[in-house]
């Protein structure tokens, strides 16, 4: 499924097609399915990410975020469709393709009994670095992660935040143009999270293309220029944060009812004067109106007449979380 917002620039400008040179990642109508699964985990997803973008990938549990990252990092093969990174396909140049992507896995993919320096040396050499180049990149990574004197101590003695920073710095060793981060700030304190965000912004400014998944909508909102939302393996929205919020905020009334009543309520309210559109997702019914505060009494009266009682109500502009709720009908929650 193609993003319903189309492709936009990061500055809320009109949607436009990216030139090949601008497109760092091109995911074209990709379908992927795990063995013995009835439904595809990734269902006809098309996503283009411009060079230097910092894209936040959102989705509830089982939406397919990690699967999409696995496909991008060539850990998994698509059943159909194509993935190109800087115009290159994995099947054409497997080794060169992997050189283009730095993966920061959700798990702390480090050897706990080795020191920070030893971990960097091992993964640097595994990435194909050696000699002066390796030393230079290790110095950069130590500085980037803020390891300093801790670099010579075993990783098992590091704080959670320091491990996360080293996890990120390790992926940067080969200086890949594309960085893929799967929940890189899970379980760390706000200061460390802030430090990682600063690092990522800097990398983005320097031209790295970054894909970032998180369950923290606020950090996506603060950090990312572009956002893509996956739900049940489908890309249901993609665009700049501004465009997404503009579309899903505004003069709206959000009503929360019992899930079994939501669709009936949507039917009742669709004919109300001043109500432009009604959508029901899960227990949430969203009304687009010309003047939410003026229309609210009539809306509540119509529900009362239909013996429907809302259990929650909000009026006015919404944040990304509400936009996400409206799109997916579910809340973002931690992975099991």
């Amino acid at each position: 499924m193609t993003a319903d917002l189309g492709l936009t620039s990061p500055h809320d400008g009109p949607a436009r097609v990216l030139a090949a040179s601008e497109c760092a990642i091109d995911i074209d109508d990709v379908v992927a399915r795990y063995p013995r699964m009835d439904h595809p985990s990734i269902d006809h997803v098309t996503l283009k990410v411009r060079t230097g973008a910092l894209l936040g990938l959102l989705g509830p549990n089982g939406a397919g975020k990690t699967t999409l990252l696995s496909l991008l990092c060539a850990l998994m093969r698509p059943q159909s469709g194509a993935i190109r990174v800087q115009g290159m396909r994995f099947d054409d140049h497997p080794e060169a393709y992997k050189d283009l992507i730095g993966l920061v896995p959700q798990a702390l993919a480090l050897y706990p009994r080795l020191t920070g320096t030893e971990n960097l040396a091992v993964f640097g050499q595994m990435s194909g670095l050696s000699g002066r180049q390796l030393r230079a990149r290790m110095d950069f990574a130590i500085d980037f992660a803020g390891l300093n004197e801790m670099a010579q101590r075993r990783v098992e003695t590091y704080s959670g935040g320091l491990r996360r920073r080293l996890n990120l710095a390790t992926a940067l060793l080969p200086d890949p143009p594309v960085l893929v981060l799967d929940e890189p700030t899970v379980g760390i304190d706000p200061q460390s999270r802030h430090a990682i965000h600063e690092n990522l912004r800097q990398l983005s400014v320097e031209g790295k293309t970054i894909i970032y998944t998180s369950h923290y909508l606020d950090e996506i909102e603060q950090l990312c220029d572009d956002i893509a939302i996956l739900d049940r393996g489908r890309l249901i929205a993609q665009g700049s944060l501004g465009a997404l919020l503009a579309r899903f905020t505004g003069n709206r009334i959000d009503l929360r009812l019992e899930p079994q009543d939501a669709h009936r309520a949507a039917g009742v309210l669709s004919g109300e004067p001043g109500v432009q559109s009604v959508t029901a997702a899960g227990s949430l019914v969203t009304l687009a109106t010309d003047d939410p505060h003026r229309r609210l009494p009539a809306v509540l009266a119509a529900l009362e007449a239909a013996q429907l009682r809302p259990v929650g109500l909000s009026v006015g502009p919404r944040d990304l979380e509400q936009a996400f709720l409206s799109l997916t009908g579910t809340e973002l929650r931690d992975e099991p």
């Binding site: 990092c73 060539a74 850990l75 992997k98 992507i101 993966l103 896995p105 959700q106 798990a107 702390l108 993919a109 480090l110 050897y111 706990p112 993964f123 595994m126 390790t170 992926a171």
Partner: peptide
């Protein structure tokens, strides 16, 4: 530890 995942990438 996820190291194998990193090595696979």
């Amino acid at each position: 530890q996820g190291v194998l995942l990193r090595l696979r990438a």
